[in-house]
Amino acid sequence: MTSSVGVDRVLEPVGVLPQAAWRLDASPAIREDEVRVRVERLNLDAASFRQLSEKHGGDGDAVRAEVLEIVGARGKMHNPVTGSGGMLIGVVEEVGPSSPLGVKAGDRVATLVSLTLTPLRITDALRNWDGRSEQAPAEGTAILFGRSIVGVLPDDLAPELALAVYDVCGAPALTDRIVAEYEHPRVVVLGGAGKSGSLALAAARMAGARTVGIVRNTDEADLLRAAGVADEVAIADARNPVEVAAAVGEPATITVVCVDVPGCEHGAILATAPGGTVIFFSMATSFPAAALGAEGLAADVTMLIGNGYVPGHAEFAVDLLRRVPAVRSLFEARLAGD
Rank of each mutant, 00 (worst) to 15 (best):
V150N: 06
N128L: 06
E183M: 09
D124Q: 08
S198L: 07
L112R: 11
T141E: 14
G192Y: 06
R127C: 13
T175R: 10
A202Y: 15
L144T: 07
R177K: 13
E134H: 11
I122R: 05
A180N: 08
L153M: 04
D156R: 06
P137V: 02
V168S: 06
P159C: 08
A193E: 10
P185F: 14
V113W: 09
R186P: 12
D156K: 04
L161G: 11
I178G: 09
I149P: 01
A125N: 10
N128H: 13
K195E: 13
Y182P: 03
A203D: 13
A110W: 11
E183Y: 03
L201W: 12
S198E: 08
A138K: 04
G194R: 06
D130W: 07
L115W: 05
T111G: 14
D155W: 14
A173K: 10
V168L: 07
W129C: 00
I149C: 15
L161I: 12
T116P: 07
A164V: 01
A138P: 14
G197N: 11
L190A: 02
A142R: 02
V152P: 03
A162S: 15
L201F: 13
L190W: 04
S114M: 06
L190E: 12
T141N: 13
T116H: 09
T111K: 05
L144D: 14
W129P: 02
T118P: 02
L157E: 07
G131V: 00
P119R: 03
P137Y: 14
L117C: 08
R121G: 04
A158C: 01
V113K: 12
P159Q: 05
L161M: 12
L199P: 10
E183R: 12
I143C: 03
V152L: 09
I149A: 14
D176P: 05
P154T: 09
I149D: 14
A142N: 15
S196M: 04
L126V: 04
Q135C: 05
V189Y: 15
G194P: 05
I143D: 00
D130I: 00
L153S: 06
L120H: 11
T123I: 09
V152F: 00
G151A: 09
L174E: 04
P154N: 03
A171F: 02
T116E: 04
A203P: 11
A125D: 14
T175P: 14
I122S: 03
L161N: 12
I178H: 12
G146Y: 11
V189N: 10
G192Q: 01
L161P: 13
F145N: 03
V152Y: 00
R132Y: 11
P185N: 12
P185Y: 13
L163V: 01
V113Q: 12
D156T: 04
G131Y: 11
T116R: 14
I122G: 06
V189I: 11
I143V: 12
A110L: 06
V113F: 06
G170W: 01
